[in-house]
Design a binder for these strands. Sequence first.
DNA 1: TTGTAAGCGTTATCAG
DNA 2: CTGATAACGCTTACAA
Lengths: 363, 363
Amino acid sequence: MAQQHPEPSAARTAPEPAAPTPPRRRSRPTIGDVAALAQVSKATVSFVVNGRAGVSPRARQRVLEAAAALGWQPSAGARALSTRRAQALGLVIRRPPELLSTDPFFPQFVAGVESGLSPLDYALVLQVVETEEAERNAYERLSHDGRADGVFLTDLQLDDRRPALTDRLGLAALIIGPGRPDSPVPAIGADDAEGVRRAVEHLHALGHRRIGHVGGAEGYVHAEARRRAWMTALDDAGLPEGPLEAADFTGAGGARATHQLLDLPDPPTAILYANDLMAIAGIAAATSRGLRVPQDLSVVGFDDIPLAEYIAPPLTTIRQDVIAWGRAAAQQLVSLTQGHPFEAPALPPVEFVVRVSTAPPAS
Amino acid sequence: MAQQHPEPSAARTAPEPAAPTPPRRRSRPTIGDVAALAQVSKATVSFVVNGRAGVSPRARQRVLEAAAALGWQPSAGARALSTRRAQALGLVIRRPPELLSTDPFFPQFVAGVESGLSPLDYALVLQVVETEEAERNAYERLSHDGRADGVFLTDLQLDDRRPALTDRLGLAALIIGPGRPDSPVPAIGADDAEGVRRAVEHLHALGHRRIGHVGGAEGYVHAEARRRAWMTALDDAGLPEGPLEAADFTGAGGARATHQLLDLPDPPTAILYANDLMAIAGIAAATSRGLRVPQDLSVVGFDDIPLAEYIAPPLTTIRQDVIAWGRAAAQQLVSLTQGHPFEAPALPPVEFVVRVSTAPPAS
DNA sequence: TTGTAAGCGTTATCAG
DNA sequence: CTGATAACGCTTACAA
């Protein structure tokens, strides 16, 4: 008899009245308090709050009353520890500050994600990083610390290593935007091509034949998708190849690219931009050269930022319902973390919003 | 003998090879694994990772090596449960989607907060809500679930009930923006007045005497602060009261307010807007009436969104370093959650950025 | 300096 | 259907 067992069950039954922990001012009621008040076991309380079968109506009723009386709600942290699930999703953003502050994407996306998450009682933990190393680190920590059950992968690059990373970590992940065919991670993205096609058709119908494109930052999958969509649409419309200028989604880049395009010996009569920010900067650039928009140059943006309607001239642009996208993404990712197979949800179709910045070409 | 105890201690030592839990593929190493590998106790490992004294260099070394070998990092959830601290801060955003997507504030603020938080190893959990009820609920849950140790209070309203709420919850909180004198919650905000004063002086120096203001949504403390700053600056400059139009920070509101002001019998020759979005919409509104900016109307914004520089004409505006603000706020709030007294940190001064949208008045 | 063991608030297992 | 009781992974007295 090397060890003496102090009658475990008896010892655990008695201490309550002995007040071994009097100074312990417990701030919030626990499941134990509720169980005691309802005169049931903790397990029963747990069953009740989790809506599981196997609880008598009477017991359930008492539990509910006790919980209400105590104002008790289960602790997310304790639950997470027990279930090994954080009940939270992670979003890591790596973008230059310049882009972060005007791009309407993230605020809307986050709002959409939240609207999808809150009914499910999931939280969103956010990280903003600057370097790729910090980004990878963030994903590892999120997974490792048990802070998130799944993560969104945004701004995917052509040679992105994150899908492999999350795969290795065994972390559920979902790519936001056009995916890569060989990726181990599913993707959910709005159909950029449809909007671009409509824009090109619109310009074509107006009589434009030289339709240029100012693209987004090279290396990004979504920038590439828009570029490709533009080329395809041109081709489908029977139009010649248009001049292309790669930019970086910033106002400065948009302005510079616009000047480049307009400096061409045979400049385009219409330009399709990969985002509104560049398009608006492009309008200003054209205006500063004495060109009138839309008489001398038609401009089409992408995103439909709130400002698009309130600049001069109001911007014709392609709008996607980013909020709905975020919501769908959140629901899908939660579903993935629960082990369900990926199922591409239907996203609302892109809209093409015609305003004033497009018109028939001058000549 | 009602119960039979299966020799608990022995049972706990043996089960490993007996494979009572063979399918339990433990995904991440635990502190126990590290302790075992390092041949020390869990407590020692804990001491090492938490940088506490009382560990021999040898033991520390072994622990470090073991942790590295196993790729172990402490679990945030378990730590939170034990310490009753989430090591996370909460940010609840309640804004109409329209405002959320163009306002440069939140993305920048979040970026700043992150830069302050990541060195401290704190996370940021975000919630976006629509109603006031949902907002209050969010704070309660954040506190109750133990998901956040402290929260930021943004977009404070004049009769805001959140300070009282967080106070009651015993949740550390920090108001972002101008605070209320009687508030139980400390505030950290950029000095709007200084920027507004510089703007008014600039316009005054150009020769303007009728300087209008398009304000932000009524009821908000920061909108009120800018309004008041404008009135004070006018007074200090010896200028007469200017016409005021309350708007709502949106493009639509800015355009409407601008028309109202310009419809006045004696319209202002310069307008100061409470944000850039309204200012840009105001420029478009004025332009649509045949007015030229800045010849016929000078326009000053507030925020310096990235686009401000790339519209026609480039916008004169007031810039605050929101990222630095966010970083300082994060550090302060963490400090508050740790029980330290509030200490107002120095924020970088606002800058007044003169571009092209301001010029001497026509007459 | 190090180890033991008792929490932290849940969920899960498994006898009654 | 119900109730003990053992995890979950960590921190932290308290002993040794």
